[in-house]
């Protein structure tokens, strides 16, 4: 039994339902959608955790690729270096899931990890280099 976390980026037109259904039915993979974000105009992204036989996961991934879905390995993490952060509030403007926000009372940057879909948009925006994408 293997576990894999992936970020799938798919064009708007693709409907997620039949795809995830096939993952279960044809490849015997259990999956858990940790986070999904579909924005009009921009592509959709989902953070998926797959559990199943290693070869079957492999085959499942190949199937997803054949459907025109982009796949990123998401065994990574966004890490905010609190020491470096100056709480400017620039990164929240790149975070569509609002995992990064400036708290209205403390004026401090708050990072809610469970909302992060690891899209990576915020990674190169920080002027003081406080955001790291860790693998």
């Amino acid at each position: 039994m293997a576990t894999k976390r992936l970020v799938l980026t798919f064009p708007e037109k693709i409907v997620t339902k039949p795809i995830t259904y096939r993952l279960v039915k044809d490849f015997d993979i259990q999956f858990n959608i940790l986070r999904a974000e579909i924005t009009a105009d921009i592509e959709g992204k989902i953070l998926l955790e797959l559990k199943g036989d290693k070869d079957k996961i492999e085959a499942g991934i190949n199937y997803l690729l054949s459907e025109g879905i982009t796949i990123q390995d998401a065994s990574k993490d966004i890490i905010i270096d609190k020491e470096k952060c100056v709480n400017c509030g620039l990164c929240p403007s790149l975070c569509i899931t609002k995992a990064l926000i400036i708290n209205r009372q403390s004026y401090e940057l708050v990072f809610e990890k469970n909302k992060c879909i690891l899209c990576g948009f915020c990674e190169n925006c920080c002027p003081v280099n406080a955001i790291k994408l860790k693998i």
Binding site: N87, C88, L90, L94, I101, I102, S106, Y107
Partner: peptide, 23 residues
Amino acid sequence: SGNVELRGEKVLTGCLSSYKTAL
């Protein structure tokens, strides 16, 4: 507030200067 309306759509805002440090 975190977003403004631009051509009828909500758009995320971000600040370069730190209000917290200014305070």
